[in-house]
Design a protein around this nucleic acid. Structure first.
Length: 569
RNA sequence: CGGGGUGUAGCGCAGCUUGGUAGCGCGUUUGGUUCGGGACCAAAAGGUCGCCGGUUCAAGUCCGGCCACCCCGACCA
């Protein structure tokens, strides 16, 4: 490929909106271009990377016996209505109607449709297990697209779906996909870790996310340095020492005046007590408008994802002024005693005396003890933080890192087959529901995550397996006939040896060419220059190392092809 | 959807406070010189100042509305 004819130019400066280093490099190196918020076009260089990433995913899916197929982007409403997701997904999906007024959704994902097909194609337990997958554009009207390709509104996802006769079979399929994911990400050069995750909108119980730790990520991951516990903060828990004080020996709650002291910070300052001495009582409103109170220690924050899961709701908001009166409380002075709403007590609240709001203006109560003075459902709804004890080994102190979720796997069991009446005939001759799982990988997100984690201050440093080209051959200067003819002969020899070469034949200064080579980040740089040809040599340099090597022109093609063949595939 | 910010040439920005000729750098085009780390000289092209309305003799600048994009938060591959 001649660089002079490449569609897509490198940018010396990145557009101001690009924030993360991966986003800036993606734009500068002509990998992709924005079309609208959260919608991107792959330029030829980026598309070559995307295709290589896809191919790695494909090979690893095929290796575990999954079969590739393809389902449409446009999906009919009736099927979504069977599982209730037509309404549930309303806020974040793109929809349209055809000329007859029939409703369609730009596919958010394809569980409903693959179950429809499974029902038609898989009629007997003898045909199980099965895994099918496809690469398809998925549409998600994200409220906030972010950081280039990391969070977009239309993206190609590899989505695989497993069908098994029972739970044990599902666990096997799940484990097979888990293994395939580990190999897939390793081959792309991504150091992805498997973490426990919340099942979110997909339903089901068991789920793992594959997270690549990088500051550009938007998820927070708790990691135990002592054992193998790793979990998304939406799911993470912690070990808590039980702290019991005999209730009968303690004085009953007594009121203290706390004029205009409405926050934990203000209470700490005026009462000279640490945040842990207080109880925080949050009054919240769930999707249906029901009020609920959550009691937490003063130093703990609520984790909305965990709370939503506990409540089985899609949305949680803070209560408004009027809600406080209805709950028998006062904003700024809410406490757990005497509340007239459902009360949840976070498990990090100890059985010891706390200072809590009195539910009346300018007053708090001292010696408030959970279980003695107020009752509620015990839940886990607090945000785990740095330094908390690992819930698994109970001794490791959790660290918290940011990560990008490049893939996830769910075992949802019969969630969809029950709703859709998707069954097969079992060994005993009766209809049984499929046990299913789904397994996604975002292609574009993976590509940008590779950039986020493989670059230096000059540009991208592609892992060879996914690089847009294997060799970047630079002719210097290109208008020197001898240089040009020898460079082109070398390009030709390399291409015949099936090496992918980007040939920089542009009439540009050496500085521009080297800077672009560093920016684009092709693993091997070969320079054919007038200077080196005097000694009959060409220069070979790896993008990832400083050293360069001189090779006689006559052996260059063989040498370069040998290096390329030695790379992992 | 809540909070914040930005829209001026392909990209990066100044000009707006205090209304009066739309500017700088990079890039692009032409000619010449140069050629191992983002060269130099000369000439040139390129703008409905996000959109609509208002105020004014006069609006990039002031006022109102809308739109787009970015960042933080809630959601996902």
């Amino acid at each position: 490929m001649r660089q002079s004819t490449l569609f897509g130019r490198t940018l010396r400066e990145a557009p101001a909106e690009a924030q993360t280093s991966g986003h800036r490099l993606m734009l500068r190196a002509a990998i992709a271009r924005p079309l609208a918020a959260g919608l991107y076009t792959w330029l030829p260089l980026g598309f070559r990377v995307a295709k290589k990433v896809e191919q790695i995913i494909r090979e690893e899916q095929d290796r575990i016996g999954a079969q590739e197929m393809e389902m449409p982007v446009l999906t009919p409403a009736e099927v979504w209505k069977q599982t209730g997701r037509w309404d549930a997904l309303e806020p974040i999906t793109f929809r349209t109607i055809d000329h007859n007024g029939r409703e369609f959704m730009v596919s958010y994902t394809h569980e409903e449709f693959v179950h429809l097909h499974a029902k038609q194609e898989l009629q007997s337990y003898r045909q199980l297990p099965q895994i099918v997958y496809h690469f398809q554009s998925k549409g998600r009207d994200e409220a906030r697209p972010r950081a280039g390709l990391l969070r977009v509104r239309e993206f190609v996802m590899k989505d695989a779906y497993s069908f098994d006769a029972d739970q044990a079979g599902l666990e096997k399929s799940y484990a097979a996909e888990h293994g395939a994911y580990e190999r897939t990400f390793a081959r792309m050069g991504l150091d992805a870790i498997s973490v426990e995750s919340d099942t979110g909108a997909m339903g089901g119980d068991v789920a793992h996310e594959f997270q690549v730790l990088t500051e550009a990520g938007e998820d927070r991951i708790a990691i135990c340095p002592n054992c193998d516990y790793k979990a998304n903060l939406e799911k993470a828990s912690r070990s808590i020492d039980t702290y019991i004080v005999a209730g009968s020996e303690l004085p009953p709650p007594s009121e203290i005046a706390t004029p205009s002291t409405t926050t934990i910070e203000a209470l700490e300052a005026s009462l000279k007590q640490p945040a842990t001495a207080f109880l925080k009582t949050l009054l919240l409103r769930e999707a249906k408008g029901t009020l609920v109170a959550v009691v937490l220690p003063g130093d703990r924050d609520i984790n909305e994802a965990k709370l939503r899961k506990v409540l089985g709701t899609t949305e949680v908001k803070f209560a408004n002024e009027g809600d406080f009166a209805a709950a028998g409380s006062v904003p700024g002075f809410s406490g757990p005693i005497g509340l007239k709403v459902r009360t949840l007590i976070d498990r990090s609240v100890d059985a010891r005396p706390y200072i809590a709001g009195a539910n009346k203006r300018d007053a708090h109560l001292r010696n408030v003890v959970s279980g003695r003075d107020f009752q509620g459902e015990q839940v886990d709804a607090h945000d785990v933080r740095e330094g908390d004890l690992c819930p698994r080994c109970t001794v490791g102190k959790l660290t918290i890192k940011r990560g990008v979720e490049v893939g996830n796997i769910f075992a949802y069991g019969t969630y969809y087959s029950d709703k859709m009446n998707a069954t097969f005939v079992g060994e005993d001759g009766t209809a049984k529901p499929f046990f299913g799982g789904s397994y996604g990988i975002g292609v574009g997100r993976s590509v940008q995550t590779i950039i986020e984690t493989h670059h230096d201050d000059k540009g991208i440093v592609w892992p060879p397996q996914v690089a847009p080209f294997q060799v970047h051959l630079i002719a210097l200067p290109v208008n020197d006939e001898d240089v040009r003819s020898k460079a082109e002969k070398l390009v030709d020899e390399l291409e015949r040896a099936r090496v992918e070469v980007l040939y920089d034949d542009r009439d540009e200064s050496p500085g521009v060419k080297f800077a672009d080579a560093d920016l684009i980040g092709i693993p091997l740089r070969v320079t054919v220059s007038a200077r080196n040809l005097k000694q009959g040599q060409v220069e070979i340099k790896s993008r990832s190392a400083a050293a360069m090597e001189m090779v006689p022109l006559a052996f260059a093609a063989e040498k370069i092809a040998g290096i390329v063949r030695s790379w992992p595939r």
